[in-house]
Design a protein around this nucleic acid. Structure first.
Lengths: 248, 248
DNA sequence: CGCTTTAGTGAACGCCGTTAGCAAACACCG
DNA sequence: CGGTGTTTGCTAACGGCGTTCACTAAAGCG
């Protein structure tokens, strides 16, 4: 009687679509757990299928291959990271721009060090994927993640917290690249000068550097706790942006 | 008559040792080429053996497994990178500290972008190696590579080019980590204050950040030529060190 | 009910790392 | 020279992997 009619296109998902979605979610969930427990090399379709009580070829109904599965979960992880940062941002009074920035950046590092395998997949070299793999879903999600920071930075900018560097330090080539960067990221409102994009890029590169160094464990045989170095670098970065730093 | 006697221990390598060494070099050479041509995932004992006209188990006489082979070539690559930087350094007048630093850092980036697969293996997350793999050879070589920069920095330090940051910005925790860092790296001559080590770390992190970002191609869908950004960051870093920057 | 679309299976192919047992080549010694 | 122990490389085999193909069974739908 109340069985679903064919209300495709705009209506609710059919039963089939729901169970299909659930199965896909299960696949991604197990893949994600394997990623965490055994690293990227430990994610395999056969192992996932085995754990689900299926056979590997069955997974091809849901995913077009191991590479595309990895891209899918990478996209999920970007969403998750963005949500974690946004949650931290929302946990402090919205007027306190300084604290919001500080909290967001700390949340970024914090997520990274508690999700090392994920971070390596998202921000490390693409070592597992065959060249030519379609990265669209991950790139899309990455772009959305970036937007989290653009809005914070935009606010900082409109509050005129820091002096922009002199334009003559920006070579024409750099200016062109920065423009391209801003355009593609949807961060090129007309009021944003190229000098500001330059500052943003520099900050991002520095943040990326500390966090990568920590997560990839390239100093861990020599420095056992990287948090102090991160905090110090964070202080440097924020001070340059005219943002008030306070110890955690 | 002139056949080699048993002058083991201190004398020249025996014939056996020489051919053995040559075979190992061939193995590493092919592995390296596969790494460059197909990425880390494309390095396999079977493929190497096939190309050498051998079978895979035969390689186990030379290498204790794929992981240890990867560690070996990683060590080689560190040596090579160190040599490339040293060569660039030696190509400019030794009195001109400013130019030596500038040249060395550019050489680092230059090697990285022309050896992307190698750089990813050396400086990226250890995604291919089973946890627990013995990394000693690579770590050793990495340490020697680091020394290249310490000496340059040490010179800069003794010339008192830049003011050290105030000590009160260095928390006790950070100071402890920095000391550990310097000790393990053999960069802890008594005249080096902890503030200097801090500056060195910061610079290294920033350099690492730009280069990783470029090599891992995390902005390449948005910024097609990263050199201007690198040069800009380089200028920032060097200016902070009191080193004269000049465009390439 | 019958037809179509979908989900999942089993077998197969060709890769991979790694182990064990065995035969040839080699280096050395008397 | 012959004998002996070591080094080298092979074959065979095990288990794991991604992926394709042909096929069955179920679900959805009119």
């Amino acid at each position: 009687m109340t069985k679903p009619q064919l209300d495709r296109g705009a209506g609710k998902p059919s039963r089939r679509e729901r169970v299909r979605e659930a199965t896909l979610a299960e696949i991604k969930g197990i893949a994600r757990r394997h990623l965490v427990e055994q690293g990227a090399a430990g994610v395999s379709l056969r192992a996932i299928a085995r754990e689900m009580g299926m056979t590997a070829p069955g997974l091809y109904r849901y995913v077009s291959g191991i590479d595309s599965l990895l891209v899918l979960i990478t996209a999920d992880m970007f969403e998750e990271l963005a949500a974690a940062v946004a949650a931290a941002d929302a946990s402090v009074p919205s007027e306190d721009t300084d604290l919001r920035i500080l909290t967001s950046l700390r949340a970024f590092r914090s997520w990274a060090v508690t999700h090392r395998a994920e971070f390596a997949t998202m921000f490390g070299p693409r070592v597992r994927l065959a060249p030519g793999t379609d990265l669209t879903p991950a790139l899309e999600a990455g772009r959305r993640f970036g937007a989290t920071f653009y809005t914070l930075f935009d606010r900082l900018l409109s509050e005129e917290r820091f002096p922009l560097p002199e334009g003559d330090r920006i070579t024409p080539g750099l200016a062109r690249e920065l423009r391209a960067f801003a355009d593609t990221c949807g961060f090129s409102a007309p009021h944003i000068p190229v000098e500001a994009i330059m500052v943003l890029s520099t900050c991002w590169v520095r943040l990326y550097g500390v966090v990568c160094m920590e997560v990839f464990e390239h100093l861990d045989f020599v420095m056992h706790d990287m948090e102090p170095l991160f905090e110090s670098e964070l202080q440097n970065i924020l001070t340059g942006l005219g943002v008030r730093y306070q110890t955690p």
